[in-house]
Design a protein around this nucleic acid. Structure first.
Length: 565
DNA sequence: TTACGTCCTG
DNA sequence: CAGGACGTAA
């Protein structure tokens, strides 16, 4: 469960072949590295087994890439591997990868914007795209292997009773000996070729990255990383030049510009505290309960470039992922329910970032986003912090988009509005903890505060309006004034803060609104509105009714996801 | 001063 | 929703 352990596991598994002893570590990193080495030793056996499975999974995937055949090929791959006794060919063990990889500082090579040569960048970009695809497949497979691995772990004690990890029913190919016997030899040939291909591409890309970026940026970044979490001026310039510095609420622009890589700040943060902001498991993939007539006004995609085939492959994996993620209210893919017990840990780091694209592809199960859902999000393990390498790679490609924002986006606005259902008077510190993907500045802070001020203004105006209306309608008992989900006041408020109705307004908000309405009603009836500051006492009351905001709102990417729903 | 909030306006 | 004026508390 500890991040370090996960880190080790991830880094080892993510690059089963390309990983090698860190070459010529700088003095500062030596301790770290030896630690890692030690841990590697300790878990080498387990890792080897997993590594072997990853290998074979890749083979199986390449052999039978269609989703239908995927499951069987996976099983076949496992079976195959067992037949081979887990002995892995060594000839693909590659030499030094990016040195920082082992230190968890792999992100430092991410800002390829540091390369001044556009041509090289373009080339690099393409290569990275390809590598990214490979990585994604690896991630998918890894989360699966992780799953089975953990299952195996938890059953270690019971393994004497069940010596065979696989359940009999899970092997559709069990009764097809012909096919099965024919596979290994063919598979071996194919696997050799595929491994060679993959390894070659990987190393090629790594080499390019190193060649292009390393000499200039890497050294510099390395120093900065050790001294100050402040990006150098040139890096900063590139960073901004990549189009990340746009006017708040300006016309939304695709935020996946090739240059918009992991922000230096995020790097520093994740590097220093081990807390990756970019990998929280929050995914607001809900399509909501929007009425058919309502059409999303801003359909621009953040992940539209996601390859279809990946999504197809992923859909199988994500089926139960969704189910687990969204708890009772979810409706993951039907086949998912029989997948058996699943440890939540296994799902997320690899799939979360891709889930949105899959959900977009599928979009057959609208998921109303209720507060309970948000709470269930909160129960998810925090970001897959440790997986520095993959995360860095993922952050470096156009498909992923979880970076620090230096401007508030429409997505943030929407999120803020939903947060208003829980808190009317958020402090700046609270806001900072709930907009983790925002780089707070004085300007940003005051803008957020201004937003909530505007929200309050609208809220109080509406309530006052309805209070006066109730008074005119002859309501006598303030206690009878209640805001229900079908009252006009609620409709007005919901329209304002929850346009599209894709969030289930918490009941607590109804109580607060009811109380506000009653207070206004009583005050007006008592003629207090003659006093210029008659609302102040009411404000004071309401300001004490803030409730806790579900942790799910902290999830990175939630702002972006919200925008889409 | 700074930070935060309200009120008013467009 | 943003900008600005203004009040108030640290």
């Amino acid at each position: 469960t500890c991040c370090e352990c996960l880190h080790q596991r991830c880094s080892s598994l993510a690059f089963p072949r390309t990983r090698a002893p860190a070459p010529v570590p700088c003095a500062a990193d030596r301790d770290q590295l030896s630690d890692q080495h030690l841990q590697d030793q300790l878990s080498s056996q387990h890792l080897r087994a997993k590594r072997a499975r990853v290998e074979s999974i890749i083979q199986g995937m390449s052999l039978l890439p269609t989703p239908q055949a995927f499951g069987t090929s996976l099983e076949a791959a496992f079976g195959h591997e067992r037949e081979r006794g887990g002995e892995m060919p060594r000839e693909f063990k590659r030499k030094p990868r990016v040195p920082q990889q082992a230190t968890g500082a792999g992100r430092q090579v991410a800002p390829m914007a540091g390369s001044p040569h556009a041509e090289g960048c373009q080339q690099l970009k393409e290569q990275l795209c390809f590598l990214e695809q490979q990585l994604r497949r690896l991630q998918e497979k890894f989360s699966q292997v992780c799953d089975s691995g953990n299952t195996a772990q938890t059953q270690e004690g019971a393994e004497k009773v069940h010596p065979l990890p696989e359940k009999p029913g899970d092997r559709p190919d069990k009764d097809t000996p012909l096919w099965k016997s024919g596979l290994p030899s063919a598979a071996r040939v194919l696997s050799q070729a595929l491994k060679h291909e993959l390894a070659g591409v990987t190393s090629q890309v790594v080499d390019s990255v190193l060649k292009t970026v390393w000499p200039k940026a890497a050294n510099q970044l390395l120093q900065q990383h050790r001294s100050l979490p402040v990006p150098g001026p040139d890096v900063r310039r590139e960073y901004f030049a990549a189009g990340k510095c746009r006017k708040p609420l300006a016309k939304p622009s695709p935020r996946n510009a090739p240059g918009s890589l992991g922000s230096p700040q995020a790097e520093a943060l994740s590097g220093a505290s081990g807390k990756s902001l970019g990998s929280h498991a929050g995914s607001f993939s809900s399509k909501g309960v929007r009425k058919p007539s309502q059409v999303p006004s801003m359909g621009y995609s953040l992940v539209s470039a996601a390859p279809v085939q990946d999504s197809q492959l992923l859909s199988q994996l994500l089926g139960y992922g969704q189910h687990s993620l969204w708890g009772s209210s979810s409706c993951g893919s039907p086949s998912a329910l029989e997948r058996g017990p699943l440890e939540p840990l296994d799902l997320h780091w690899g799939t979360v970032k891709l889930r949105s694209s899959v959900v977009r592809q599928q979009q057959q199960h609208p998921l109303p986003l209720s507060p309970a859902d948000m709470e269930s999000l909160a129960l998810l393990p925090a970001g897959r912090d440790g997986c520095g390498e993959l995360q860095a790679a993922m952050d470096g490609v156009p498909f992923t988009s979880t970076h620090m924002q230096e401007a508030l986006t429409p997505g943030h606005l929407k999120k803020a509005k939903l947060m208003f259902f829980f808190t009317r008077y958020p402090s700046s510190t609270l806001l900072k903890t709930y907009f983790l993907d925002v780089q707070f500045s004085r300007c940003i802070t005051s803008q957020l505060i201004k937003w909530f001020s505007n929200f309050r203004e609208f809220y109080y105006i509406q309530v006052e309006k309805f209070a006066r209306q109730a008074l005119l309608e002859g309501v006598v008992d303030a206690g009878t004034l209640r805001v229900s989900r079908d009252s006009e006041l609620f409709r007005a408020l919901n329209m304002h803060y929850n346009k599209g109705n894709d969030f289930e307004v918490p009941g607590r908000f109804l109580e607060v609104a009811s109380l506000t309405l009653q207070e206004f009603f009583s005050a007006i009836r008592a003629g207090k509105d003659a006093d210029p500051s008659w609302k102040k006492p009411i404000y004071k009351i309401i300001s004490k009714l803030d409730s806790n905001i579900p942790e799910g709102f902290k999830a990175a990417g939630c702002s972006q996801e919200l925008l889409r729903s």
